[in-house]
């Protein structure tokens, strides 16, 4: 029962599989077994948000889930945001243009937390953006440019839709 188990899931639209002990954290499975190192492991106890991914369409912390729980799930990680030709997602583009990252450690989690919130509220105020990204810690930027980028990214996404 603590022996390795098979895990099959969909990651960024591709069927993937792996085998690991039940105690393996989902973030470690994503990074080590699937080789997708864009998802970062920071605090490993659910506080910093660096490991945030889309789990069945909603943002969740992958450091406080076990990989075995994701059997059959659909994940989207930062690697799945850009288009296949490398064209950045509008939110990534906005982060690029607004200099919303320095070391970049928090960026995958920031992007996913922001996109998750925009699904609920596509036109957030600055206060609402601050509230939403309070789910992710950034030790470099001071957040100002991240807030600007999320605002701009949200506008670009709305413009692309209409």
């Amino acid at each position: 029962m603590s022996a390795p188990v098979d895990i099959r899931l969909t990651v960024n639209g591709q069927p993937r599989e792996g085998r690991c002990e039940p105690r393996k954290l989902l973030v470690d499975f994503i990074r080590e077994d699937l080789g997708l190192t864009g998802t970062h492991a920071g605090c490993e106890h659910g506080v910093c948000g660096a490991c945030t991914i889309f789990y069945n369409g909603e943002a969740a912390r992958s450091c406080i889930m076990f990989a075995v729980q994701a059997d059959g799930a659909e994940l989207l990680t930062v690697e799945g945001l850009a288009e296949s030709d490398g064209k950045l997602h509008p939110m990534q583009q906005a982060f690029h243009e607004h200099h919303a990252l320095q070391c970049g450690f928090c960026t995958p989690g920031m992007l996913i937390a922001a996109l998750d919130y925009l699904k609920i509220n596509p036109s957030p105020t600055e206060d609402e953006i601050r509230d939403a990204i309070s789910a992710v810690l950034c030790r470099c930027t001071g957040y100002i440019n991240i807030v600007k980028a999320v605002k701009a990214g949200a506008e670009a996404m709305r413009a692309a839709k209409s």
């Binding site: 659910g46 948000g49 945030t52 789990y55 909603e58 943002a59 969740a60 912390r61 406080i64 889930m65 937390a113 998750d116 919130y117 609920i120 939403a132 309070s134 789910a135």
Partner: peptide, 8 residues
């Protein structure tokens, strides 16, 4: 918590 922790 935060929206991403309320997901689970």
């Amino acid at each position: 918590g935060h929206l991403p922790t309320r997901t689970r």
